[in-house]
């Protein structure tokens, strides 16, 4: 309270209306300045590592090993990238990740829309019970499925295949996807469905021609959020993928630590830079949709 008075006092003192209006502005000086300091500090913490990642990947290896880890090189080189590509099949890792991410996203969206449509729009007798079963999947950590899935995959010969990773990724993402589509469907006025039904539109055509086109915004949210998680998935790939040819980006990166004895840090950072780029670019291009989606998640 005292800060308010301090700020207002001197400014409002000498003359009349004009300055006073300025002092009654939205944010008092001190709160605003503290905020700016905090915001800048956190910005530094969140963004600097990216800068460091890129500059390190451009530094000569000796320079990095000997000198200040924080320093920026004056002579950027691309050697590290050449070594990074020599030491691991980066294009292959990227391709595997893209394939797994693409298929998983598609399934998460389509199955999520179907489930939400059945639960929210069509409705059936035990829908609350089924919804509860799905919500359990939001709460339960993915690790509990590892051993059973490993055993089951061994039985049916699915181990070390793309589906072995895709299936659990989809299964664990479905609850949130269904939940997001359901909360979108509640915004569609009931009259829309009733009018369409009166015109003889059955549940299938309704789904395809009315519900689906309207939910494209939610589709974008679901795809973006899940792409980040799936592209970066470590635990399922690490458990179920065994052969080098099927390794995804995270597994590929992990091998940089082991494969070279003493870690070749600048090459490793180069590999990280290359593999992070697609996702960072996609994120920067679509950032509005991601932020809108995340902000909307909590509109309870």
């Amino acid at each position: 309270m005292s800060t308010m008075i301090d700020v207002r006092g001197p400014a409002a003192g000498p003359t009349a209306p004009a300055p006073r209006r300025r002092t009654a502005r939205r944010h008092p000086f001190s709160a605003s300045r503290l905020s700016k300091a905090l915001v800048t500090l956190v910005l530094l913490l969140q963004v600097y590592p990216f800068f460091w990642l890129v500059t390190t990947s451009l530094r000569p290896a000796k320079d990095f090993a000997a000198g200040n880890p924080l320093a920026v090189t004056t002579h950027p080189i691309l050697d590290n990238f050449a070594r990074a590509f020599d030491n691991g099949d980066i294009p292959r890792f990227l391709l595997n990740s893209a394939l797994i991410t693409g298929v998983s996203d598609l399934l998460i969206v389509v199955l999520g829309m179907m489930g939400a449509y059945a639960l929210q729009v069509i409705g059936f007798r035990f829908s609350r019970l089924v919804l509860g079963l799905f919500l359990l999947g939001i709460v339960v950590p993915v690790q509990v499925a590892l051993v059973p899935l490993f055993i089951n995959y061994t039985d049916v010969g699915l181990l070390d295949s793309y589906p072995s990773v895709i299936l659990p990724l989809v299964g664990f993402a479905l609850p949130m996807s269904i939940f997001l589509f359901m909360s979108f469907y509640t915004y569609v006025p009931k009259e829309t469905y009733e009018a369409a039904a009166l015109d003889g539109c059955g549940p299938y055509r309704l789904f395809w021609w009315i519900t689906t086109p309207m939910s494209l915004g939610t589709v974008a949210t679901v795809v973006f959020v899940n792409t980040i998680f799936i592209w970066n998935d470590f635990i399922f790939a690490n458990t179920f993928i065994l052969s080098t040819g099927k390794k995804t980006v995270p597994l590929g990166l992990q091998s940089y630590l082991g494969s070279m004895g003493s870690t070749d840090w600048t090459a490793t950072f180069a590999a990280v830079s290359v593999t992070v780029t697609p996702l960072v670019l996609a994120f920067l291009v679509f950032n509005k949709a991601v932020v809108r989606g995340l902000s909307g998640t909590t509109r309870v």
Binding site: I228, F234, V280, V290
Partner: peptide, 11 residues
């Protein structure tokens, strides 16, 4: 601020 969420845990 969201940028670090894009990084994989291995990175």
């Amino acid at each position: 601020y969201l940028l670090p969420a894009v990084l994989s845990t291995v990175a």
